[in-house]
Simulated assay, not measured.
Amino acid sequence: MMTLTDVSILFEAEDFGDIIVESEVFHHYIETKEALLHDELAQKKLAHFSKLKEKYEEVQRFGKYHPDFRTVTTEVREYKRTVDTEPSIAAFKKAEKELETLLREVSEVIAHNVSPQIMVPTGNPFFDAKGCSGGCGSGGSCSCSA
Score class of each variant (00 low, 15 high):
M2N: 08
H27D: 14
K93A: 08
H28V: 12
S88G: 03
A42T: 06
H38K: 12
E75Y: 00
V120P: 12
F69W: 12
V106C: 01
S133A: 06
S50Y: 13
L99F: 08
K33Q: 12
H48T: 08
G137M: 01
T71V: 10
P67F: 07
K51C: 10
S8N: 05
K45I: 02
L52V: 03
M2F: 09
G131Q: 02
G134S: 15
S115H: 11
G123D: 04
M119Y: 15
S23C: 03
T32K: 15
F92R: 01
A129E: 02
E96P: 00
S141P: 01
D84F: 05
E14R: 13
D6V: 00
R70Q: 14
T71P: 00
K55G: 12
D15K: 12
K64Y: 03
T3I: 01
V59R: 12
E34Y: 10
F11Y: 14
L52H: 06
Q60H: 06
D18C: 06
F16W: 02
N113D: 09
I9V: 13
E96S: 09
E14C: 06
V114G: 11
P87K: 00
N113Y: 10
L41R: 13
C136P: 02
M1Y: 07
V21L: 13
V109Y: 14
I118G: 10
A146C: 14
P116V: 04
T101K: 14
A111V: 00
G123A: 03
M119A: 11
T71L: 09
H66T: 05
I30H: 08
R61F: 13
H27I: 14
R70S: 14
N124M: 03
S115C: 10
L41Y: 09
F127R: 09
Y29S: 02
E22R: 13
E54H: 14
A13C: 11
L103N: 07
G123M: 03
G139D: 01
K130A: 15
C132R: 15
F26Y: 14
D18M: 13
S23A: 10
K51S: 15
G139K: 01
S133V: 08
E105K: 15
S145Q: 12
D39K: 04
A129C: 14
L36D: 03
C144H: 07
V120M: 12
L37Y: 08
T82W: 00
S23R: 07
H66P: 09
C144T: 05
F127N: 06
K80P: 05
N124L: 05
V83I: 00
Y65F: 04
H48V: 07
Y56I: 11
G137W: 03
V25R: 02
E54A: 12
L4H: 03
P116D: 13
A95Q: 06
K53G: 08
H27Y: 10
G140L: 03
R70F: 05
P121E: 11
R61V: 14
K97R: 11
L41D: 15
I30P: 06
P87A: 01
N124D: 07
K53R: 07
M1I: 05
E22L: 12
Y79H: 06
E22I: 02
E14P: 04
T3Y: 04
K44W: 01
Y65H: 06
F16Q: 01
S50P: 05
L103D: 04
F16T: 09
D6C: 03
F11Q: 11
E86A: 07
E75V: 00
H38L: 09
A91V: 01
E75K: 05
A146G: 11
F69N: 06
G63I: 02
E105T: 10
I20W: 05
E98C: 02
T71N: 08
K51M: 08
